[in-house]
Amino acid sequence: MDAIDTLIIGAGALGLACAARLARPGRSILIAEAEDLIGSHTSSRNSEVIHAGIYYAPGSLKAELCLEGRERLYAWCHEHRVAHRRIGKLLVAVNDAERGKLDALLSNAEACGVHDLQPIEQARLAELEPAVRGVAALLSPSTGIIDSHAYLQSLRAAAENQGAQLVLRTRVERLEPDADGWIASGTSSGDPFQLRAQRVINAGGLFAQQLAQCTLGLAGAHIPQLHLCRGHYFSYSGRAPFQHLIYPMPEANTAGLGIHATLDLGGQLRFGPDTEYLEHVDYRLDEGLCEPFAQAIRRYFPTLDSARLLPGYSGIRPKLSGPGEPAADFHIQTAEDHGLPGLINLFGIESPGLTASLAIAERVAHLHDL
């Protein structure tokens, strides 16, 4: 049986960031990805935003790792020439009733260690973004955008340059602890395989719980319930009316931040995501959502031309909280939690997972004493 040092399951941003951090000459690392391409799910179906760390519970892993990850990510992009732009974001109160939400966000951000938000009033908002309707806003200069695909490729290159090996179309279907670590069984391009690894990192994203259920010795009580939450995105044809990202106040009783406006590095404007809980992974986009999207967007962009609103794509977040429940934190599960040495499970790594990916990888390396 082939034996390696580390098996990383999943070649999204998390798995590849862990591989890039852990890979060294003389250290055998295998990244097993079930799909034909890297980053086929959550890592490539998102807003491509580098988050500042504004919304999360103070003291949470999301708050801590977003701040650390943000700075690591900007530095990585500079070093590895990954296209990005520190474009800035405006969090907008559309009426006086929402000023309290704006104040609460400012207080929460400061409690999380984000101290560069700039309160602005209506006149300044109109100067910055004439097409936006609002009575006040917060400007977040640390928010940025990134080419997520280029980022994934840079992580892959960094890992492979240090000796890590990526295998696609390879599905790990069973993990079994033994005296020398773990025995992983599954199929690779349709053929069965088995290998031994000293340590395993489950970075399966939407499928992390599925793998955990096939891990011998891992009690069901240690596998948090997965809640699949789909978000749809619509693009806006023609010239974008904004220079910044535009975020409305978070909507009450939803799992998201409201349908916000983001720009990609080519200047394409898109709106989303909404929130829809699912039973199964399904990326279909209902074109009938165009009008509800338009109504939500017109609260802060009243001159929206709905004829320019076109179906884009959808993404799915691996949430640990269900409808109506408080947002759950990242769950980095180690032997201290489940009693199985050499196994780390990464559960519920939704937004800001892309921003936090390098910080999560650093945390994983520390947990493995590497």
Rank of each mutant, 00 (worst) to 15 (best):
K62T: 10
S107W: 07
Q213V: 10
I31F: 02
L354N: 02
L117V: 00
E251I: 07
C229A: 15
A219T: 13
D337R: 09
I38M: 05
Q122L: 05
I50D: 06
L354R: 07
G69M: 04
P224C: 08
L370M: 12
G53Q: 10
A307R: 15
T42H: 04
A335P: 06
N345V: 10
A34G: 12
L195V: 10
L320D: 02
V200N: 03
S140E: 14
T262I: 02
V135H: 03
D369Q: 15
A83W: 05
P241A: 05
F234S: 03
G59Q: 09
S44R: 08
H84W: 11
A97C: 05
D116C: 03
A11L: 04
D36E: 14
S237I: 03
H338W: 10
P341S: 03
N95E: 12
N202D: 12
N95S: 10
R133M: 02
A34Y: 04
A361G: 07
L354V: 08
D369R: 15
A164K: 10
A93H: 00
L125T: 01
G204W: 11
I344V: 13
N253W: 09
I120W: 04
A109V: 06
G267S: 01
Y151M: 15
N202F: 14
G266E: 12
L125P: 05
L218E: 14
D191S: 14
P25W: 08
P273E: 04
A20R: 13
G272R: 01
D96S: 07
G324I: 03
E251N: 09
N253Q: 13
H78D: 15
Y233R: 08
P25G: 07
L269T: 02
A104I: 01
L91C: 02
R174Y: 14
H338E: 05
V281W: 10
F347H: 07
L310Q: 15
A158C: 13
H331K: 05
C214N: 15
L257S: 11
L211F: 09
R308F: 12
R239D: 07
I9Q: 06
G342T: 04
A255T: 02
N161L: 13
T334A: 00
E98Y: 01
P58V: 09
Q153A: 09
T275R: 06
E279L: 11
V281M: 01
F207M: 07
A159T: 14
G26S: 13
S142C: 10
G134W: 08
P318M: 04
R299K: 15
A137W: 09
P323F: 02
R298L: 01
S306Q: 13
A150H: 00
S306Y: 07
T355R: 01
I8C: 05
F207V: 00
A212V: 12
R27Q: 11
Q118R: 11
A13L: 13
A150R: 07
A136S: 12
E279A: 14
Y247I: 03
L195K: 09
G100N: 11
A20T: 09
A23G: 08
G231Y: 02
V172A: 11
V167S: 13
G312M: 00
L206A: 09
S314I: 00
S235D: 13
P130S: 07
I38Y: 06
